[in-house]
Design a protein around this nucleic acid. Structure first.
Lengths: 156, 156
DNA sequence: TGCAAAATTAAGAATAATTCCAATATTATA
DNA sequence: TATAATATTGGAATTATTCTTAATTTTGCA
């Protein structure tokens, strides 16, 4: 939603407050998730921060993501079956929309006054709203060259 | 939601109307998804209908599910990352809730008057609402024996 | 009824995301 | 600085799903 850029210092503070050791790799993951706007998956994150850590392991990306999700700083999106995407958590609540043409994930406003129903006896931790369809670009050109660009991206 | 049992005849009709050939395997898959209440994943479906088809292949289950989803008779739930679950489609619209204790998926009412926001220029095909938390049983007994029962189930 | 074409099923290999594990390195602190 | 706790690596293992090909079944039609 409103994407104001977080500084490293702010992010380190967030991690500290959440009881997480702010390792360089962890910070890089959080920075990318928080400032990229792209709702990346683990592969995108891995490829993008690889620069800074030539010996980066995919395990580290997964470990960092788990730690950050666990700590409540990052949210896991299950909008794209079989591929987890990530978004910064502490934001105004919003929904997400995935385009079936290009795979891009967009922020989507929640319906006015949206509030989860409460269910007798259940403890509801979170409610996610996911939309699917076509984005403006893909509506315009169904067989666009952009098609599927974001789905299997990145070299290597 | 309201789970009235569909007869085989009704299901065959549904398939025919949707332009799908009602093979025995396909019918078995639809019958299980439609009448089991359990929001099964492909593994559960496979194991449950194996009785009737000793030579059943997992591919057939996947093929059937794809065909049924494509035809709009079955809905794919992405509530459980890395595991697709299925639900009968032509029902009053409702949300779903997954218990992080036992993995059971429950139907959940949508908030009153819930309607997707419309987004300028986007074509919205569907909007899904997924809740997470603890079901009554798991709230009562956090370290219950039932724990994780539904998550990695089935022998073989 | 009989046969060709089309569709479906089956079996298993291939793929891809994720998890697991053991070894090494880093960091925090006594 | 030594020790303990935690994090990172690398690679093997796991798991759901897809893909491929061949065999089988069904369907439409002569």
């Amino acid at each position: 939603m409103n994407h104001h850029i977080l500084t490293d210092t702010e992010m380190v503070d967030m991690m500290r407050k959440a009881g997480l050791r702010p390792s360089a790799q962890r910070l890089a993951v959080l920075r990318y998730v928080g400032n990229s706007h792209s709702h990346p998956d683990s592969d995108e994150i891995y490829n993008e921060i690889l620069h800074g850590f030539p010996s980066l392991s995919r395990s580290t990306v997964y470990n960092s993501l788990h730690a950050l999700v666990e700590a409540g700083l990052v949210r896991e999106l299950e909008i794209d079956a079989g591929n987890r995407h990530y978004d910064l958590a502490p934001q105004p609540p919003h929904a997400h929309f995935i385009c079936r043409g290009c795979g891009t994930i967009f922020d989507m406003p929640l319906p006015d006054g949206f509030a989860p129903v409460d269910m007798q006896g259940f403890e509801i931790d979170s409610v996610d709203v996911y939309g699917k369809g076509l984005c403006p670009a893909c509506t315009a050109s169904p067989t666009d060259t952009k098609l599927n660009t974001n789905i299997k991206n990145t070299t290597e």
